[in-house]
Design a protein around this nucleic acid. Sequence first.
DNA 1: AATTTTTTGCAAATAATTTGCATTAATTCT
DNA 2: AGAATTAATGCAAATTATTTGCAAAAAATT
Lengths: 145, 145
Amino acid sequence: MKTTVPKKLFQKAEKLIKDKSLSVTEPRKNILAFLLKNHGPFSMEEIHDGLGKNACDLATVYRCIVLFENSNLVERRYLGDEILRYEYKDMDHHHHHIVCRICKSVSKMKYCFISEIEQMIRDKGYSDITHSLEFFGVCAKCNQK
Amino acid sequence: MKTTVPKKLFQKAEKLIKDKSLSVTEPRKNILAFLLKNHGPFSMEEIHDGLGKNACDLATVYRCIVLFENSNLVERRYLGDEILRYEYKDMDHHHHHIVCRICKSVSKMKYCFISEIEQMIRDKGYSDITHSLEFFGVCAKCNQK
DNA sequence: AATTTTTTGCAAATAATTTGCATTAATTCT
DNA sequence: AGAATTAATGCAAATTATTTGCAAAAAATT
């Protein structure tokens, strides 16, 4: 991954962090800017590598991602293997993923109509309902082989 | 957990294992019977403990569960924390879960109408589609406190 | 600019999962 | 059914992933 991140995204990252009243540090800016640039989701290691070596310690990635997750800036994804991955949580673009079981490619799915189910759950007395929805399959390319 | 498992379930477990042409061993029977008796889903440790001490080694639980998963006898669940859990995969009773974010209680949800989405994904060239769908919220009890 | 508070890097600790291998158990083959 | 073969298990050790303590560095506050 390891791509150059435009200055604009650093500024956006900085603003997002500030708006959550978190202190703005180099590692945090780098990590969030990386996630703004690249859709992911990425594992901790992938994020660490993506920043380029010596950007910050892996332990710092763990700490920042957990912080971002608690601040609702980052969303954790479970994609069927044992690795947890993270991506920027864009409130305006709720979506899910389709993961190929063979090549592990991930493609975005913007459709999601489970609000009816959520309403049912709300009727049972639950509040603050969220969901996790991912699809798995064998993609067209892998089917050809 | 650690409940006594009726003989009938041991026999059912044995049959299920045999039908997948896997060798039938004590640990495998115990583990599957435990999952037939208790809904779960359970972590590796919970399964191990549930069998009663000295039933088999924890490493054996890992090996058996992975085997069962590959044979489609057991289903892996991601419930929002970092622990993966497993339950018996009853082909006739596809379902999902609602997890309370506070007390972690898990309740079953038999509703699932995402076949339309799966069709869309199929149209994109994917095959063998499955999905993972879990809901999270704060349950009625926890809301009272 | 100085002080206080928070975060980071590094190393070490912990926890989770996997593996090698000798032993034991299950299956297969007379 | 019993011997031979194959596969699974237990145990310990190795590996991997994640977390933590603490001194140093950086950010926020004054």
